[in-house]
Design a protein around this nucleic acid. Sequence first.
RNA 1: GACCUCGUAGCUCAGCUUGGCAGAGCAACGGACUUUUAAUCCGUGAGUCGCAGGUUCGAAUCCUGCCGGGGUCACCA
Length: 585
Amino acid sequence: MNSCWKPTIGSRNSSTESQRQRRTSVHLIGGRLFLWNGAAGTARSRPVRRFRSPDLFPSTPIDRMSTSPADLSEQEQRRREERTELEDRGVDPYPYAWEVDARAEEILDTFDDEKHQPADGEAGSYEVSIAGRIVGLRVMGGSAFFDLRDESGTIQVYVRSQDLGEEFYEEVFTELFDIGDVVGIEGFAFRTGMGEVTVRAADDFQLLAKSLRPPPPVKEETEDGDVVERHYEVTDKEFRYRQRYVDLFVNPDTRDIFRRRATLLSTMRDFLDDRGYLEVETPVLQPVYGGASARPFKTHHNALDMPLYLRIADELYLKRLLVGGLEGVYEIGKDFRNEGLSRFHNPEFTMMECYVAYKDYRWMMDTTEDLLRTVTTALHDEPTLTFEGHEIDMGGSWTRVPFFDAIEDATGFDLYQEDADRVHDVAANELGLAEDVDSDMDLGELLDEVFSETVEPTLIQPTFVTDYPVELSPLAKKHREKDGLVERFELVVAGREIANAFSELNDPQDQRERFEQQARQRAAEVDADVDPADLIDEDYLRALEYGMPPAAGLGIGIDRLTMLLTGQDSIRDVILFPLLRPEQS
RNA sequence: GACCUCGUAGCUCAGCUUGGCAGAGCAACGGACUUUUAAUCCGUGAGUCGCAGGUUCGAAUCCUGCCGGGGUCACCA
C-alpha cells in the first residue's frame, strides 16, 4: 500500500528514545503534569502565532482571518479554551513529531492470542507506538476506550488512570482531549473481554494536534433492522466535496476510492512503461488550443503580454513528438474545458493519451483490451466488474461494431451517406428525438445526437464502436475502404464512453483542410470577431509537413474510468476536490 | 439560463395542511462509573424557524419577492 512506510515490529527504532524518556518521566514524577509531554520549558516560550498584517492583504478583512468569539459555536469556543488550558499546563498542543512503528490494520491482522495476549495484570509482548485521530470516545470513570483512526483503519485504545497517572488522566485526558484530536499512543496490544484487539496506552499518551473544530456528529439512528449502520459516516454530498479532508478521515470508503484510483494510475503507467513508451509532459499553457472541440479557459502571460489557453487536449503536442522520432509516447495529465458541470463533467479532468508509431486503430483495439483488462484485474482480482447492477466482463475480445451498423441495429434506419436533412427528419419524426435535435445542427452533430440517444445506453458489455463519420473526427485518418468515414473507435462500457482512438491523420494537406473547416465553424459559433486563421495551429501543420509516421492514438478519461472501476455514479466522487460553486457564508 | 425541490438547535429532522408559549433524537456541558463497543444512567444549556416585506390582535405556519443548497434539462467529441 504505502511503500514508504515499513512496519518494524519487534525491532523498534532507537530513535524512539525521546519518547521513552518522556514516558519515564511520567513514572518518575507521577502526576507532575507540566512535565508530561516533555515540552514544559518550551511550550510557554513558544512564540505566539500571529496573523499576518492586514496591510499585506488589504482586500481581506482581518476579522475574516481571525475568528471572533461571537462567531464561534459553543463547542469551538470550548476547544479553544482547552487549548489555552493545555498550554498553561505546559502541554504543547502542537508538538513536532511522533515515532510511529505500527498501524491499526497491521496490528489487527497480526495479533496472535497465543503469542501476544498478556496474562491478567501483566504487560503484553506486542509493543506498539501508534498515532491517529480520536473517534468515538467512551469514558467510564477511571478507564476509557476510544477508537483511534489512522490511514490504515481504526483500532481501539484502552486508557487507564493507573497507567498514566491520576492527574493526567483526570485533569488532562478526560477534561482537555476531545473527539477529533490527533494523539500518539505507546503501549501493547491485547484482546479485551469483549473480544476486540485493543492497544493499551500503558507507556505513553500524547496530544499531537488539538482539534479546534468538532468533527461532524454522525451517529445516525438506524430505524429498522435492515438499514445499514453508519455511525461515523457523513452522507451529505456537498459537505463531503467541500470539506474533503473531513470526508477522508470520517469515511473509510472515500479513502478507498482514492487508493484504487492511484492503483489504477500506477497499473496503467506500468503497462505503458513495460511496452517501452515514454512518459512525457507537454504544455498546459498553449497559445493555440486544439485537439478537441471544447471551449477553453483563457489566461494571460504578463511578461510576453500574450493570451494563453489552458489545454483542452494533449493530442497535438504528443503527435509533434512522433514527428520528432519518439515512437511511443504517453501523457497522463489534466485537461481543462470551460463547460458546464455535471456528474460526468468537471472543468479540469485527468486524461491519459498514448500515441504509437507505425500502428493503426485495429492494433490499438487489441492494446486497449489488454490495458483495460490489466487495470480491471488490478482492482478486482479478475477481469470483471459490477456497475449499476450489471455484471461486466472485460475478459476475452470485445464486440466491434461500425458506427452506422450500430445505429441501424438500434433504430432500423441506415443513415450511412444520408444528408443532414434526412438525418434530422429521421431523428425528429421517426426516433422521437424532436426535442434533442434542431434544423441548424450539422450532419456530425445530428449523427452524434442519434448515436448518444439510441445506441450508447444499450451498450453495456465493452464494445468498440468503429468507423465514425469524418464530420465528427477532424484528427482521424480517412477510412482505407469506406467513403466519408474515418478510422476511429470509441470504447463504450456500461453505456459510457471510456476511450477514444484513431489511426492518426498524418497527411498535412488533409489536416489543413479539416482545420480550416473546423476553424470556420468555431469562429462562427464562438465569437464572430475571431479570425478563423488564428484558430489554426500552424506549428502543428508545420510539424506534419516534415512527416509524421503512421500512428495509432488512444485517449482514456481517467476520471470516468475510475467511476466505472469503483462503482461511483458521479465524477465528483472520484475527484478529491471537485469544482463547486463558491461557498456562501 | 429554464424547471422541480428543500432551508427550524452543532447534526438529522418533527411542527406548517387547519396561525395561538419553539420540539425530539444525536452531539455538547455537569455528575456517577477502571474491559467498553453507537457504552450506560442522572442532570443542564443551547434557536435571527434562510432574509426582507405583506396579511393578521397574533406568523416557523398564509401571501409576495429575494438569497442559498440539491436535482433535472440546456451547453458539452
